[in-house]
Design a protein around this nucleic acid. Structure first.
Length: 426
RNA sequence: GGAGGAAUGGCAGAGCUGGUUUAAUGCACCGGUCUUGAAAACCGACGUGCCUUUACGGGCACCGGGGGUUCGAAUCCCUCUUCCUCCGCCA
């Protein structure tokens, strides 16, 4: 969430940012409402502190009187103090209310978009930041979509996934399972080479963690929830991995922090339907390797570029046609300041599929996480957090199968063969 | 799942028969004196959040989380969480 101090001192900057997210005048009222709540909160705090200070003095005095044996005077003072207590209780309750209200107001305000973020309502307004310059692969009319290829070679079984769990669950078998495992290992090895520490985190997280990275309250409905134990199934490794640094104060020399993790990701995807969700295009469970960075604010945008290069490198090694989008204000995620999406071209469906999203959250997540660092001057500041998919498996598999199909079978990209230990699926 | 014990500042560790504790002490870290330099020794500073102040400063809260008793709670009570020991179950 945004820092209240910043919002208080720069309401116009905040409003301009929210306008880029298509807030109208009515919706913008939240800014002034939040400031009003904060004013109330601060006044209550001041009043309460004053009363508590007086009450502390009295308590000390009573203690001294008892010690000196002046019982009568002490009892008299006790009665006086008792009357102040109800007022303290009242103020405490009010302060608490304003604090909760302020928290809720701040949670409802999204991150401010970076200057580079284009104006726009939705995905059609995203800016193509890097085009695919070569001709797109043309497989002709006989090309099979990946769900047909999956059946033909018996490598992915959506029917069994549905039988065992429900629609939107895939079962990988044989070379399909091996391909999946090979991709995970390939992505992890590449991240390792780039200096990321490998993490295997818990796949179920508590509410504090879900809140820390912003899944709650924004995307609460997208997560599977184990009610009996009050745990959420992770929608991305970002959640457990970033939360390693919840409530932490770093030293300046602790930067850069580079972590990677492979996890399955669980998403309810309620409401999604139609051809968009066919096959591996959108599933409830998919594998993903995530890269996470925690950085000094002065370096975070340089690091964002570095992360883009990393993802580019992966797609080029896999020989997949891709393009990069810079998301517009309407499409940028709630917690992000600047997001780039990578899409690969799936040649049989003739569609671009999103396979990675790389974002800089600046201090927005860090403020929820209370993730700070001590600067050279000894003062504490919020750190910047970034993350990106490197990469999301399911759609990569879809594109690989479709693009590499031949009459003799599906060819495995050279870079991947050491991991699959077979050259084609036939 | 059952029984018992524990949770204090970066770490260790007192306090836990409620009131000179504004949390002792040691270590670590930082600044200084001494030294050619370093070590040792000595001196000093040394938590987090919020409110207030132009500033210097002042105030409040925090001893795992939440609630309660009391004029006053690290200390007493309730509750939750986590860790340790033992028993049971288990890949």
């Amino acid at each position: 969430m945004l820092e209240i101090k910043f919002l208080r001192e720069n309401p116009d900057v905040v409003k301009a940012g929210l306008r880029k997210r298509n807030y109208n005048d009515d919706a913008l009222k939240i800014v002034d409402q939040t400031i009003a709540i904060d004013t109330d909160r601060r006044q209550s705090q001041t009043a309460l502190d004053k009363l508590l200070a007086e009450s502390n003095q009295s308590a000390k005095l009573i203690g001294n009187l008892y010690r000196e044996g002046k019982r009568d005077e002490a009892d008299k003072l006790k009665l006086e103090v008792a009357s102040a207590k109800s007022k303290i209780k009242e103020l405490e309750a009010h302060l608490n209310e304003t604090e909760v209200a302020l928290e809720n107001a701040l949670l409802s305000i999204p991150n401010l978009p970076h200057d580079l973020v284009p104006f726009g309502k939705g995905e059609d307004d995203n800016e193509v930041f890097q085009k695919w310059n070569q001709p797109l692969p043309d497989l002709g009319d006989k090309a099979l979509a990946h769900w047909d290829l999956a059946k033909k070679y018996n490598i992915i079984d959506f029917g069994l996934g549905a039988k065992i769990s429900g629609s939107g669950f895939a079962l990988f078998r044989g070379k399909g399972a091996k391909l999946e495992r090979a991709l995970i290992n390939f992505f992890l090895d590449e991240a390792d080479k780039a200096g990321y520490e490998e993490i295997i985190p818990p796949l179920l997280v508590n509410e504090a963690s879900a809140r820390g990275t912003g899944q709650i309250p924004d995307k609460e409905g997208q997560m599977y929830y184990a009610e009996k134990d009050d745990l959420y199934l992770i929608p991305t490794a970002e959640v457990p991995v970033t939360n390693i640094y919840r409530d932490v104060i770093l030293d300046n020399e602790d930067f850069s922090i580079k972590m990677t993790g492979y996890t399955p990701c669980f998403r309810r995807e309620a409401g999604a339907h139609g051809s968009e969700v066919r096959g591996l295009n959108r599933v409830h469970q998919f594998d993903k390797v995530e890269i996470v960075r925690i950085e000094h604010p002065t370096k975070s945008y340089q690091v964002l570029d570095e992360m883009l290069d990393h993802v580019r490198g992966l797609l080029e090694k896999l020989e997949l046609p891709y393009r990069i989008l810079r998301l517009c204000g309407g499409d940028t995620g709630f917690t992000s300041a600047l997001t780039y999406d990578f899409e690969v071209y799936s040649a049989a469906q003739k569609r671009w599929l999103e396979v990675s999203s790389v974002s800089n959250f600046e201090t927005y997540q860090a403020n929820r996480l209370k993730l700070r660092y001590r600067d050279a001057d000894g003062k504490r500041h919020l750190a910047h957090t970034l993350n990106g998919s490197a990469l999301a498996l399911a759609r990569i598999v879809a594109a690989l199968l479709e693009n590499n199909q031949t009459e003799d079978g599906i060819l495995i990209p050279k870079a991947l063969v050491p991991f699959t230990r077979f050259e084609k699926i036939d």
